[in-house]
Design a binder for these strands. Structure first.
Length: 313
DNA sequence: AAACGTTACACCAAGCTTGC
DNA sequence: GCAAGCTTGGTGTAACGTTT
């Protein structure tokens, strides 16, 4: 295609398409660009003409991108960034002068475990950077797409058997393993369990942690395969709550070692008698940020901070 | 009833054509 | 070269249709 072909096109169409892909909503894209919703609808009409594809189709109340729109997304993002760069001064990235905020999505327990190290590591080089931590949720991918979430730390749930991914598809994001989450059995110093056979493990009362509190998981499947069953005496929603409960009771729990090692609780650990595959913990971000100097600076230091926090205990 | 995309219509600005 | 009139394209308001 000749470059001159562009002369017949309004490059604002690219900006509109970028926002439409990001928000998957005419109304939201219009709001983002400061035009009315019908104007954005008409713009979408022009995009449809120009690209000879519906780009977005309605599915009930949702607006769903066509395969063509999805295939176009990286190109559009790159084009918009390149266009924006034309009008930006060529200043090298200077962490000391860096201002503004950076938003990290992390689970409650990883915030507790790593936020101090992350903040200290970043402020050592970029003292003016404001950090915003927010919880991970099913909306995190969408937030990344919209640029509301810069970086996330989360488990690669596909590594665990029988753990529902919650319908969250991470394939849209860049995934970089930062450490492996292994599991240990914890007990209180008052009722220490430094070694556990499978039968003892099954006999002791458990506390389990998980968002749905249903309690049952692949550990129970494994026990059942050995004609054993355990009593889930308590179920809580966070690993930290489970650790707190174990510390003050005779309950045991099977918890991630990163949580246990960085926990303020005094806990006794034992290797689990059930083989539990390690779960890769991933740093996740939107591909648009991969080449961004500021983003690279932050994510490299976040990874360093996490690894040093794990090594320090 | 509410949310949301599409369409009809009117208005406006910019570009183009035409006649001088 | 310049001004008047026409064309084109973008926007907003209002109304409408669909879905939940």
């Amino acid at each position: 295609m000749s470059v001159m072909y562009l002369a017949g096109l309004d490059l604002n169409l690219l900006l509109a398409l970028d926002r439409l892909i990001a928000h998957r909503s005419v109304t939201e894209a219009a709001r983002a660009l400061g035009v009315t919703q019908p104007a954005m609808s008409r713009t979408l009409g022009r995009l449809r003409d120009a690209l000879d594809d519906p780009l977005f189709v309605r599915e009930g109340r949702a607006l769903v991108p066509t395969p063509r729109a999805l295939a176009l997304a990286p190109k559009v993002t790159a084009a918009v960034r390149a266009a924006a760069a034309v009008f930006e001064p060529d200043a090298p990235f200077d962490p000391v002068a860096e201002r503004g905020s950076f938003t990290l999505g992390m689970g409650e327990e990883t915030q507790r475990a790593f936020a101090p190290a992350i903040v200290a590591r970043l402020w050592a080089d970029a003292p003016g950077l404001d950090l915003r931590f927010r919880p991970l949720s099913v909306r995190s991918v969408e937030e990344s797409r919209r640029g509301e979430l810069d970086l996330a730390l989360g488990p690669d749930l596909s590594a665990l058997p029988r753990v529902a991914s919650g319908g969250v598809d991470l394939s849209e994001l860049v995934q970089r393993p930062v450490y492996e989450r292994r599991f240990v059995v914890v007990s209180s110093p008052a009722h220490p369990r430094r070694r556990l056979g499978l039968k003892t493990f099954a006999r002791l009362p458990h506390v389990v942690a998980g968002p749905d509190s249903s309690g049952r998981g692949f550990i129970d499947d494994y026990l059942e395969g050995h004609d054993l069953a355990r009593r889930v005496a308590a179920a809580v929603t966070t690993f930290d709550a489970a650790a707190a409960l174990v510390a003050e009771s005779a309950l045991i729990a099977t918890l991630p070692d990163d949580v246990v090692r960085t926990s303020p609780r005094r806990l006794v650990t034992a290797p689990p008698p059930v083989p539990i595959p390690p779960v890769p913990m991933l740093l996740l971000w939107h591909p648009r940020d991969t080449t961004d100097a500021r983003h690279r600076f932050v994510r490299e230091r976040v990874a360093e901070a996490i690894q040093s926090a794990l090594g320090a205990r």
